[in-house]
Amino acid sequence: MTPQTLLLRQIHPNFVQQGRVTSQAFRPTPKDENMLSVDDGDRVTAADAFVRFTAMPNCRSAGILAVTQAECAEQELPVIADGQPYPEHCSIDFTACTPGERDRKAKHLARAAQERGWQFLA
């Protein structure tokens, strides 16, 4: 993984209104143990990541946005290539953040991702 590696994030359809994506899409919940699931864009295409995700039960996606590893580093968010539950899976680690910090960092990531544009659109 390099600083420019795209980290692919599935965007739920209810997190899109008139083409705009909520920054919640880049904010993990306590139920996610404050780890945000993404895919390593160097190892899987956005189209393939979309197909794999939406093949799972109850999983819906409007498309895929992406942030870079460098943008995460700028927010002091470690990116862990955990390879679980599949080899390309990574987690952006928010565990050291307070709720307010989570929100603030998610806003930065969401703005960067939306300025980059959709990597895949359903």
Binding site: N14, Q18, R20, Q24, K31, R111
Partner: peptide, 21 residues
Amino acid sequence: PYLYPTPEGGIRAEWSTPEWE
């Protein structure tokens, strides 16, 4: 505002300007 559901059963309102989120 743009409005979205939250996982906790609430609603999140958002406004964007070039400088602010």
